[in-house]
Simulated assay, not measured.
Amino acid sequence: MKSISKSKLKSKLLEFLRLVESEGEEIIVTDRGKPVVKISKYGDSPSTEDLFGQMRGKIKYFEDLTTPTTEEWGEL
């Protein structure tokens, strides 16, 4: 992971964006030595089916999930 100051990034932004895009390199942008921004390649989030598909049909509900829980938790 590379690190660069905001002032240096300003003059070479396109170069660094190409690096991130082509090689997937992450860049940390600093301001006075403190990290403020991370630039990384955009990745699609997995779908709900990808995340939980293998659990389909394996979960059992023992009560109605839409009923209020104020009795259990008390009203605020």
Rank of each mutant, 00 (worst) to 15 (best):
M1G: 09
M1N: 08
K2C: 05
K2H: 11
K2L: 15
K2R: 13
I4L: 08
S5D: 11
S5L: 01
K6M: 13
K6R: 08
K8W: 03
K8E: 13
K10P: 02
K10G: 00
S11L: 00
S11P: 00
S11T: 09
S11H: 02
S11I: 08
K12F: 11
L13N: 00
L13K: 10
L13I: 12
L14Q: 09
E15M: 12
E15I: 10
E15D: 12
E15Q: 15
E15A: 10
R18P: 00
R18T: 14
V20R: 06
V20H: 07
S22G: 01
E23K: 15
E23I: 11
G24D: 03
E25R: 15
E25I: 15
E26K: 15
E26F: 00
I27K: 04
I27C: 04
I28Q: 06
V29R: 01
V29S: 06
V29P: 00
T30H: 06
T30L: 06
R32W: 06
R32G: 11
G33A: 07
P35R: 03
V36D: 07
V37Y: 14
V37D: 06
I39L: 15
S40E: 15
K41S: 09
K41W: 01
Y42L: 07
Y42E: 11
Y42Q: 05
G43D: 13
D44Q: 10
S45H: 09
S45D: 03
S45Q: 12
P46H: 06
S47P: 01
T48V: 07
T48D: 06
E49R: 07
E49Y: 14
E49D: 08
L51Y: 10
L51H: 03
G53R: 06
Q54W: 09
Q54H: 14
M55F: 14
M55V: 10
R56S: 08
R56H: 05
R56F: 11
G57M: 04
K58H: 04
K58N: 05
K58D: 04
K58R: 06
K60T: 10
K60N: 01
K60D: 01
Y61L: 14
Y61A: 07
Y61M: 10
F62Y: 12
F62C: 03
E63P: 02
D64P: 02
D64G: 02
L65F: 01
T66F: 05
T66P: 00
T67C: 02
T67G: 00
T67L: 07
P68C: 05
P68S: 09
T69G: 01
T69N: 11
T69M: 13
T70G: 00
T70K: 01
E71F: 14
E71Q: 13
E71C: 06
E72P: 00
W73M: 11
W73R: 08
G74C: 04
G74Q: 04
G74E: 03
G74F: 02
E75V: 09
E75K: 13
L76T: 12
L76S: 11
